[in-house]
Design a protein around this nucleic acid. Structure first.
Length: 593
RNA sequence: GGUUCCGUAGCUCAGCUGGAUAGAGCAACAGCCUUCUAAGCUGUAGGUCCCAGGUUCGAAUCCUGGCGGAAUCACCA
């Protein structure tokens, strides 16, 4: 069935020819939703037509409105206010559309077929020396959600995680554990693996500072103290041994990373995110070197006297960028060049999305340019999904000041808040303990996820730990609650067949139906813009609108049987849509709450 | 200093591919539960859309210049 927007656009183009002898381009036809305080469903902006119509906007609107009402069964009425032509859509269109939607369980969602293009989404990409925190939560939720959204727009999606499992930071945890750990393990201490390793990272830092201070007190200049503190020398030595494949160091490294992965996995599982493939920097950090050397040979890159290799990007309004150190080793950029090349060679990737914070905007800008210079035609297929920081009222999170909001703790807190609110309301008495726990979890995480995802990714956002995340108003639980209400109504009807009898629709019903109609467009916009917040804000509108309808009109006690059937079907559709939409955000919806 | 991003109600955020009188939630105040779940609904109050120019029939939206904030500009990752 053709969407009304398309029908109208086509008709206006015909009108342009017949009324004004003008060929209108689709882009000249501005269709928008009619504002609430005016009569109508869709509005055409007439101003662009006045020069063809050679009449006032009002006159042109009248002429066009009359034409459309006469030509299209879908348009019942029109009114013109200033240069705006407001069109009232005939109920027959809504009825027919609902009938089509009712038969399509995938409404709004496009399934990928074999031909569908592949999108690779890299996200999370944690370091293995510290537990996950609030910043990672935003990354993980965005990465997971955008993957779901892209799938829903008909793409094949591969979610990947590139774990930073090597480097001096890991060695610091290892040194501290050897020195002060007394063989402590997650089992012996009861600590989550990532937390345990993180604790030793902190311990290293404390010892290091102590040593630097001591050396400064003994008269050493600060720089020297920082560079020569014994514990730091140990960490550097450990890194060298690691690179030399020292078996003892490697064994310890594997053991401690193993603890971290176990801990991370628990956090990922709880958060509800997953990956199709893991990459590890220990396996990729040398990649890209050959590519760079070839670029050098081809005269695209240049070499300094000390042997270091550089890309000169000044013609692209960027700096010179180092690609190989003077000792011939790779840097971060080199590795990303290498991994990208490997991935594009291995998979038919149409787009590669990197979900990484905006502090790396420059890095990804350079990455694309370097790849382009090196002649890779897919260089423009990289997309940096750059997101802003999560700030606390006092500014950035700082581990030194203990203001880091731990991911596990935050989830715990959200769930326990959900529990106390639920228990107070006491609506879950029919459920056993396990079922209750599951609902607390759904609500607590729903609140957290929605809170994060409703904000435009590129903006910095504020999180105030003192004012816990809301459960009322524009929140996840509000939307979940709307769903639970719908399910509650539907539990009262046994014959769940979704049909739409011909009834005369009231205003609230039309408001709700319009949103049902909009859903596929919203999913498409979110996918095109790589922006889950589009879905989040839409789901809120849907819940808000449905709640108004629910408040004003009884579903089960409607005036007549047809109206009752219609409203039950409409509620079912809205419930399904909420479930799908929230699913795209990675948020579950409870049957009761 | 260069580059990028942000600046909308007391607070948190929508709206930004130019369109009508700029919208929600929270907080405040006033109402609505013998009727499908009140985590809901209704109302009141709250605005120099950072400032100044420009483009346009029309600017929160586009352009230029300021101001304020953030990020970044390593032989770190």
């Amino acid at each position: 069935m053709k969407r009304i927007e398309q029908v109208l656009t086509d008709a206006v183009i015909r009108a342009g020819r017949e009324l004004w002898q003008t060929d209108l381009a689709e882009s000249q036809i501005q269709l928008q939703k009619t504002r609430k305080d005016f009569t109508g469903d869709l509005t055409i902006v007439v101003f662009p037509f006045v020069r063809f119509a050679k009449s006032s906007p009002e006159k042109a609107g009248e002429v066009l409105g009359e034409y459309l009402v006469k030509q299209l069964d879908e348009i019942r009425d029109y009114n013109v206010i200033k240069g705006f032509l407001n069109l009232v859509i005939d109920e027959s269109y809504w009825q027919a559309m609902l009938a089509v939607i009712a038969k399509d369980p995938d409404y709004g969602i496009s399934q990928a077929d074999d031909e569908a293009p592949l999108v690779m989404v890299e996200y999370s990409s944690p370091n293995t020396n510290k537990p996950l925190h609030l910043g990672h939560i935003r990354n993980n939720l965005l990465g997971y959600s955008i993957s779901r959204v892209l799938e829903a727009s008909g793409k094949k999606v591969m979610k990947v995680n590139l774990v930073n499992d090597r480097g001096i930071h890991i060695c610091k945890s290892m040194v501290a554990w050897l020195k002060y750990g007394n063989g402590e393990t997650p089992e012996s201490s009861g600590k989550k693996g990532d937390k345990l390793v993180g604790d030793y990272y902190v311990r290293f830092d404390t010892e290091y500072k102590k040593q630097v201070k001591g050396m400064e007190a003994a008269g050493k200049p600060r720089k020297e103290a920082e560079g020569k503190a014994p514990i730091m020398l140990e960490a550097r030595e450990m890194l060298l041994k690691w690179e030399a494949d020292d078996p003892e160091v490697r064994a310890l490294w594997e053991k401690m990373n193993g603890w971290v992965y176990e801990g991370f996995q628990k956090t990922y599982d709880r958060m509800g995110v997953s990956f199709d493939r893991m990459y590890y920097e220990s396996e990729t950090y040398k990649m890209g070197r050959d590519i760079v050397l070839k670029g050098l040979k081809d005269g695209i890159l240049e070499q300094e006297e000390d042997g270091s290799v550089w890309a000169d990007l000044e013609d692209r309004k960027l700096d010179r960028k180092l690609l190989l150190r003077s000792d011939g080793t790779s840097v971060y950029m080199t590795q990303d060049v290498g991994t990208a090349q490997q991935r594009f060679a291995e998979f038919p990737i149409e787009e590669h999305i990197y979900v990484v914070g905006n502090e790396q905007n420059y890095h990804f800008q350079v990455l694309s340019v370097v790849l382009d210079k090196l002649g890779y035609t897919w260089a423009d297929k990289l997309y940096h999904l750059s997101y802003g920081m999560v700030e606390l009222p006092e500014g950035k999170m700082k581990s030194r000041e203990g203001t880091v909001v731990d991911a596990d703790d935050l989830m715990d807190e959200m769930i326990s808040t959900a529990k106390s609110m639920s228990d107070e309301l006491g609506k879950l008495s029919e459920y056993n303990e396990e079922e209750k726990q599951n609902i607390y979890r759904q609500i607590g995480l729903g609140a957290l996820k929605y809170f994060i995802l409703k904000v435009d990714p590129k903006k910095n956002m504020l999180f105030d730990p003192k004012e816990s995340i809301d459960f009322n108003g524009n929140t996840g639980p509000f939307i979940q609650y709307t769903y639970a209400r719908i399910r509650s109504v539907l539990r009262n009807v046994s014959d769940a067949e979704v049909v739409f009898p011909q009834i005369s629709l009231n205003e609230k019903e039309i408001d709700v139906i319009r949103l049902i109609h909009e859903f596929p467009e919203v999913v498409k916009t979110a996918a095109d813009e790589h922006n889950p917040s589009v879905i989040a804000n839409f789901m809120y509108d849907v819940a808000k609108e449905f709640n108004q309808f629910y408040h004003d009109h009884s579903i089960l006690n409607a005036d007549d049987a047809d109206t009752r059937t219609f409203r039950i079907s409409m509620s079912k559709l809205i419930g399904d849509m909420i479930e799908k939409g929230m699913g795209l955000l990675g948020i579950e919806v409870p049957e009761r709450m």
